[in-house]
Design a protein around this nucleic acid. Structure first.
Lengths: 195, 195
DNA sequence: GTCTATACGAAGATAGAC
DNA sequence: GTCTATCTTCGTATAGAC
């Protein structure tokens, strides 16, 4: 497994910083906001190096950003292996809570942003791949926690959908209440399955 | 209650058509895509009339679009008064299913799009107001269905978050499975509350 | 590998004619 | 009330010098 696949950060060359900035800008203000100008400014990368590192233009940059975000999301889920369903729910929701708090409700999920605000079918499909592998990783750790296959599939889907939705609500309402309420309901669901 | 508050469509003057187009463009491709050029083209409105009808520019147009969408969302929820919790869940999810099917997975929620892809704090706050009133309307019909206040608040929050999230997943994966799975889990949750 | 310069289009917005 | 013309800014993308 490569470093990228584990979602780790490397010393940070120019292209890596550009990708990192793109992820952040996507999460904050959507696809159009992740422009070259903004990315270069945020990443302090030299202007002339964009098409050297990303000859495919913006599409390639955003695609790379999505792929890195996917690796990171999967790594987050896999890191919860061995825990109980409730702990997994808390860990997942906690990660989103951290994103919201650290950004003062200014950031959310990059893959959601691409889905909602990009008109490029190829990038939207890539965002779909993120959701699928994220869900699968969650289902695997839930399976290991003692749920059966059907329950793990159902709960992972519900966790992802409910938390992604809750993050949007939290951003718009500038409040953590939606995420907290959803977390409670998810635990209730997990308890019903276990019991 | 005025016609707008009930979310009804009127004979359609130029500004109404522009608002309608803005709602659709927001739902399809986000904030930046709901540009004046695109709105005028879609609504067949005369070019010189934008700043006549919306002197506040794009912000005013989008704000109006959000308000109309809010009235429609609330009307949708209120229309379910008198039904059981399961029927309300089916009705709500069914409306989203229709949006996804009719748009070939190309459209979602306008308020989500504004939250995710606009950098205007005022518009994001307006989107937050949509979510609040939508949730309250859902909670009221759930209360009438026999749930207690706490249960109605919890389930309405979960319905909104989970379905909004599921719609994004459905768009990205070009599949109705996420929404269907979430619907099933919501019914399970409602059954737990009732029982 | 990085730079400047530049092409080209589209965005939001304003002014003034009809 | 609608139109055209125009301004400015910003977006992506390319060419060519260093």
């Amino acid at each position: 497994m490569s470093e990228e696949e584990r979602g780790e950060r490397r010393p940070a060359g120019a292209p890596e910083r550009m990708i990192e900035s793109a992820i952040l800008l996507l999460a904050q203000h959507g696809f159009e906001a992740a422009s070259f100008g903004a990315v270069l400014k945020a990443s302090q990368a030299p202007r002339g190096s964009i098409y050297h590192h990303f000859p495919g233009g913006k599409q390639q940059l955003i695609a790379a950003a999505i792929d890195v975000a996917e690796a990171r999301a999967v790594a987050l889920a896999r890191g919860m292996h061995g825990r109980t369903a409730v702990e997994i729910i808390d860990g997942f929701a906690g990660a989103w809570r951290a994103v919201l708090e650290l950004s003062d409700f200014g950031a959310g999920c990059s893959a959601v942003a691409v889905t909602v605000s990009s008109d490029d079918p190829e990038l939207v499909e890539r965002a779909g791949a993120v959701f699928r592998s994220w869900r699968q990783a969650l289902a695997e750790v839930l399976l290991a926690s003692g749920l059966n296959a059907q329950q793990a599939a159902d709960l992972s889907m519900m966790m992802l959908a409910a938390c992604e939705g809750a993050v949007v609500l939290c951003r718009a309402e500038r409040s953590l209440v939606p995420l907290e309420a959803v977390t409670g309901q998810l635990k209730l669901l997990a308890a019903t399955m276990a019991g």
